[in-house]
């Protein structure tokens, strides 16, 4: 075995170990999802659910799938809206030097500091007047407020690394700003698009505050509300809760693995002649 191959194998081993440590709580969640009610507080706890039960999964699979679908729709909608709003703004802040950019930067930072519950209360009032309560588009717009300021700042930071010469070259060739953005900047910002998309997806997926304030009782609820069906007023069914979380994580994890493959290496290498 060559030294390089050995090094690669060793790295994979270390990576597996690190991942295992990081994901141990997730393993624990899996364990709880198989634990029957009477063993929940066993002391000392079983590392492996020896007397496992499938009750939690039965409950999750028969009741939670519609909520899962709704969550996917909302999360994907949020991704599209967030990227559409924040990419052009990030480009402008990074490359076009508008006057008052400082103010906008400041406002974007301030916008992220408002606590979620305050935002939700404000949205409740607005949506009640507009009739958008308990609707999916309304929730998509609300969830995007978590991700858009972040998206603008990330796009600005990553797009600022695109060499000015490239854009200058396009301008002298006669391309309009819009054309430059669409044909050069956006493709080169693949990392940025994937990063912002991943975050927008995850934030919308795990959002609870907006869902609970704006969509409770609606025809289509996301999974974060669906889980609360197992938190009754006096009793909680923990194996069902954890089972729902496991079932919900699988499609999202698959999407993430696919998305990560698109983060390309060395985007600017060779693009500009030395």
């Amino acid at each position: 075995m060559t030294l390089a191959l050995l090094a690669r194998r060793w790295r994979t081993g270390v990576a597996l170990l690190l991942t295992a440590i990081m994901l141990f709580p997730v393993y624990w969640m899996l364990t709880v999802s198989f634990t029957p009610e009477q063993d929940m507080r066993k002391s000392p706890p079983d590392l492996f659910p020896v007397h496992g039960t499938l009750d939690g999964y039965r409950a999750a699979l028969t009741e939670q799938l519609p909520y899962l679908g709704t969550s996917v729709v909302i999360a994907l909608g949020t991704v599209v809206l967030t990227v559409a709003l924040s990419a052009p703004a990030g480009y402008a802040l990074a490359k076009l030097r508008p006057r008052g950019a400082g103010v906008l930067n400041f406002v974007l930072l301030a916008a992220q500091m408002v606590p979620g519950i305050i935002m939700a209360m404000g949205f409740y009032a607005i949506y009640l007047d507009l009739g958008l309560l308990q609707s999916i588009p309304g929730l998509i717009v609300a969830d995007s407020t978590i991700a858009v300021p972040f998206g603008v700042l990330i796009f600005a930071a990553l797009m600022s690394t695109i060499p000015d010469e490239l854009l200058q070259a396009a301008r002298t060739d006669g391309a309009s700003r819009l054309r430059t953005f669409w044909s050069i900047v956006l493709p080169m910002s693949r990392n940025g698009v994937v990063t912002v998309s991943v975050f927008a997806f995850l934030w919308a997926w795990s959002d609870f505050v907006f869902a609970s304030t704006l969509d409770n009782g609606g025809a289509h609820e996301p999974i974060t509300l669906g889980i609360y069906h197992y938190i009754g007023n006096n009793n909680q069914q923990w194996n069902a809760i954890m089972a729902t979380a496991v079932v919900a994580s699988i499609p999202a994890t698959l999407l993430l693995i696919v998305a990560q493959r698109y983060v390309a290496a060395g985007v600017t290498a060779g693009a500009v002649k030395d």
Binding site: T19, M22, L23, P25, V26, M29, V198, L202, W205, S206, F208, I223, T224, I227, I241, M242, A245, A248, S249, A252, T253, L256, I257, A259, Q260
Partner: peptide
């Protein structure tokens, strides 16, 4: 990608 799984979980679960 697996490292992102903690972020997938609803906060009540994690």
């Amino acid at each position: 990608a697996m490292f992102l799984v903690p972020w997938l979980l609803p906060l009540i679960v994690s």
